[in-house]
Write a protein that binds this DNA or RNA. Structure first.
Lengths: 339, 339
DNA sequence: TATTCATCTGGTAACGATAACATGGATGCA
DNA sequence: TGCATCCATGTTATCGTTACCAGATGAATA
């Protein structure tokens, strides 16, 4: 039988427990001085009344929400999910809760989202990527809370950074490919005008290839990011038709790389003997598929964990809020889809 | 240059715009009557001062947070991510924001999470699954907000339901397998004591097999859920060793099914000629891998979309809050890993 | 014994928005 | 012309907690 009267407040609990509301408030906190018996009395009264602590009032009065706002491009991406999970785990011990939003790989959408999130008065805000609208940048700088950009190394950071250079990570793979003898190397990614990490990877591909004196024009754009497995497969089909002599292809992510691999399997093209494939992100699928996928581990979970630690340090003052850059060093993982 | 003085409030904006705070408040809402010029004046003052609307105060006074709390077992699961995305998209038009938490497939953890989320005073709460601790059930029933259980058909629903029977979905696959001639069918899943949807699928496997008069003891438990691709592969290895004459195997999810498939490929076992494989969830990988995966589409996104619509209907009163059950009908998708 | 200190508890005001009610003026219609 | 309506805006009080400041008690120290 759901009660129609309005829900009990701390004052009701206080009355029943025979103490002041202030004491009830203290009893709900961890490290405040309340006697053991008072705590217990409050607990019983809470139970009895079915009282539920009201964060909204607490948030207003204390000017603390214990939210950490986080924006990611997509909730359906295992890399970002890994980051968020590690971040969330690292923060929840200290009572901080992630307030998550996604941008659909669109900076305009990101701007809207950031504004919406900041209204909730988070203690800190984590954004994925280092490219934002100028208004978004202004909102972030003026928010008066720690700002952390991740999954990138922005040229002009807003605040803190926990990330890596997408371009350099791809360059490392190319250097290896060139070293083992691949010359005609292609790149499969999304349209260049949207996903900034993907664009950076493509840009890294182009400059690295040119630095090796190689042709950097074997580019397949597979549509607006994120590039799915299927789009990777389609792109591989186009690649094989347009540039049939391609020796190796680097894909913007493991998902598109796996799609590309399956397209080769459907066409009876041997990987890596006829064409080598490289991915990005070290998704689980790359380790388990046959043949297993050469890729780059960007340490998604580590990004989340280090971001969490950074936030905790800044908030408790043990770290000055002056901008710091934590650089992640992606790892090239050589597997069966390449020499 | 970050200002040290404290951030501006509506009163400051009101002063600068030459109106009352109440009018500023109205100007920030969509469908309130404020003249065009006043709106513009408020907008300018807001811009000038860098004012950011404070939801915490708004939440307290209006007793509305515009949050919808959502619990999912894991953020790293494409099925649940699809549901959350569709849910979030359906709600965001009406200004509702998803407040997401994950339970790690653990009802104790879920209880903690539910309590934490309810403190934030959401407008509604969506939980994944229909099994909860008794305290969690009580918290949900007493919350005074719409409760929606998803991805299941609980026997004794707390409030609304948008879901399907995991057991019946698996039964459908078994019926098909038996019809086309498979007799020695196995099941790969997680340990039975944790993931309730996986347990239901296993239970559905057992009863359906028994109803066909077939042996239902070819069960491989691959550890605590969620079962990864690798665990699926390991489980397939054990299955092939313990029950080498198995003709078909049903896996608790497409991810483990894909892992199982790759294990067959590594061992040179032909799929489906030597062994057929069925998955669950219609993940993208199942459609793209070679051979493509027979699976069950549980319409994850549809669950989210219908849940969103349900919430909107209940909140605006166009639907009575009496419990309603929206049943999703999973689809058997026949592909290349089975006859 | 007097004094300091730590522990526990209470009273009061305030966080910043908005619900509820009120008001003045313009508009519409009989 | 008179009265009902609507629109745009203002005034007041309040949502439920907790920061801040005290006070009371008992133990430890000088």
């Amino acid at each position: 039988m759901p009660s129609i009267r309005k829900p009990p407040t701390m004052a009701d609990v206080a009355r029943m427990a025979g103490v002041s509301p202030m004491t009830v408030s203290r009893a709900f906190k961890r490290d405040t001085s309340v006697s053991q018996e008072t705590r217990e009395a409050v607990r019983r009264a809470t139970e009895e009344l079915g009282y539920v602590f009201d964060s909204t009032a607490s948030n207003l009065r204390s000017q603390r929400t214990d939210f950490v706002a986080v924006t990611i491009p997509s909730i359906n991406n295992a890399n970002f999910a890994d980051t968020v999970r590690a971040l969330s785990d690292g923060l929840s011990d200290k009572g901080l809760q992630v307030l998550l939003g996604y941008t659909n790989y669109d900076v305009r959408e990101e701007e809207r989202l950031i504004e919406q999130l900041l209204r909730r008065k988070p203690e800190a805000i984590v954004v994925t990527g280092g490219k934002h609208t100028s208004r978004a940048r202004k909102l972030l700088s003026n928010a008066g809370i720690p700002v952390i950009e991740t999954w990138d190394l922005p040229e002009d950071p807003i605040g803190h950074v926990v990330g890596f250079s997408n371009a350099l990570a791809v360059r490392e793979m190319i250097d290896h490919f060139v070293t083992v003898g691949y010359r005609k190397v292609a790149f499969i990614g999304g349209d260049a005008d949207r996903d900034t990490r993907g664009s950076d990877r493509r840009a890294g591909f182009i400059t690295a290839m040119e630095d090796h004196g190689l042709d950097a024009t074997r580019l397949i754009a597979a549509g607006p990011p994120p590039i799915s497995m299927r789009e990777g497969a389609n792109a591989m089909g186009r690649l094989l038709e347009h540039f049939p002599d391609t020796e190796a292809v680097i894909c913007v992510s493991d998902l598109s790389a796996f799609g590309a691999l399956t397209e080769c399997q459907r066409r009876g093209i041997a990987v890596p003997d006829q064409i080598a494939i490289g991915g990005f992100g070290d998704y689980e699928i790359g380790a388990i598929c046959v043949p297993s996928l050469t890729t780059i581990n960007a340490f998604a979970a580590e990004i989340g964990a280090k971001t969490a630690q950074l936030i905790l340090d800044v908030l408790d003052g043990s770290l000055s809020d002056s901008a710091g850059v934590i650089t992640i060093r992606p790892d090239l993982i050589l597997r069966q889809t390449s020499r």
